[in-house]
């Protein structure tokens, strides 16, 4: 475990925060780190910023661990492991990225990398409502085709991100689909990509404990999300009988989505 210093803590929306810290080294978009507020709970977090000298995580406050993370002050000590896992491998010239909720946290660095590499990028950014829309400004600074979608229609188009994406994909022209969000959404995205013959890469979230490939808590099919993931090729995910349907609770009990 490496000690990092917190440099910035930003409130992104009512429940979503970003913590930046000075962990040095290279990271791939889509990789994650285990973050630990000393004395509290350690959690896996997708990296929303992957600069050499500065990393960041963007997360929704859902419990004591994320609450403690959101209350950190610049200068505070943060225990870190990582970057860990496999990230997105961007392929082709025309990319469509589909983000549900805080899923954009892991996709944003991939989108930035694709744009700087001269790719044409379409981003479908979905949220429950206008107040929960994340990284809208960050994406508007990039030359991407940004499509906003909300479940309640309070911002952008009304509907799920995958429904908006479907209309775009039907018109054709995309080489690759990147997706991050709730697993049932990813299952829809992966099936859509398969149907239209597009390579897809999805970032999956599972309950994770060790983060190092040993404990088996994050099992997805025969794979370990912390090592073989969190980003998987959609085709591989669709061959796993539990993908989008069942997952392991912290005890290892099998539960449905």
């Amino acid at each position: 475990m490496k000690a990092a210093r917190v440099t910035d803590v930003l409130q992104e929306s009512e429940h979503v925060w970003t913590v930046r810290f000075d962990l040095e080294g290279s990271a791939l978009p889509g990789q994650f780190a285990m973050l630990w507020v000393p004395g509290g709970e350690e959690m896996p977090m997708g990296l929303s910023y992957i600069d050499w000298g500065s990393k960041g995580a963007t997360f929704k406050v859902v419990g004591d661990g994320t609450m403690a993370l959101s209350k950190l002050k610049p200068g505070a000590c943060l225990g870190t492991k990582g970057p860990l896992g496999r990230g997105y491998a961007i392929k082709g010239a025309d990319i469509i990225a589909i983000a549900g909720g805080t899923g954009i946290a892991s996709l944003a660095p991939a989108i930035e990398l694709a744009v700087s590499g001269g790719k044409r990028v379409t981003v479908v950014l979905g949220a429950k409502s206008a107040g929960e829309m994340l990284f809208e400004k960050r994406l508007k600074r990039l030359s991407v085709n940004l499509q906003l979608a909300t479940d309640d229609g309070s911002l952008g188009k009304k509907g799920f991100a995958t429904d908006i994406a479907q209309r775009l994909v039907e018109k054709g022209g995309y080489d690759q689909m990147l997706a991050c969000g709730p697993e049932p959404m990813l299952a829809r995205a992966a099936r859509m990509a398969e149907e239209f013959g597009i390579e897809s890469q999805c970032s999956v979230e599972r309950h994770m404990k060790c983060g190092l490939g040993l404990c088996g808590a994050c099992a997805l099919g025969g794979a370990r999300v912390c090592v073989e993931g969190p980003v998987f090729v959609g085709k591989a995910l669709l061959s796993m009988p539990d993908f989008g349907k069942r997952r392991l609770a912290p005890s290892g009990k099998v539960i449905s989505f």
């Binding site: 475990m1 350690e42 492991k81 005890s251």
Partner: peptide, 13 residues
């Protein structure tokens, strides 16, 4: 019976 084990951090290299 089912048990969740200890909270994280549960592993360190």
């Amino acid at each position: 019976k089912a048990a969740e084990g200890h909270p994280n951090p549960t592993m360190v290299e």
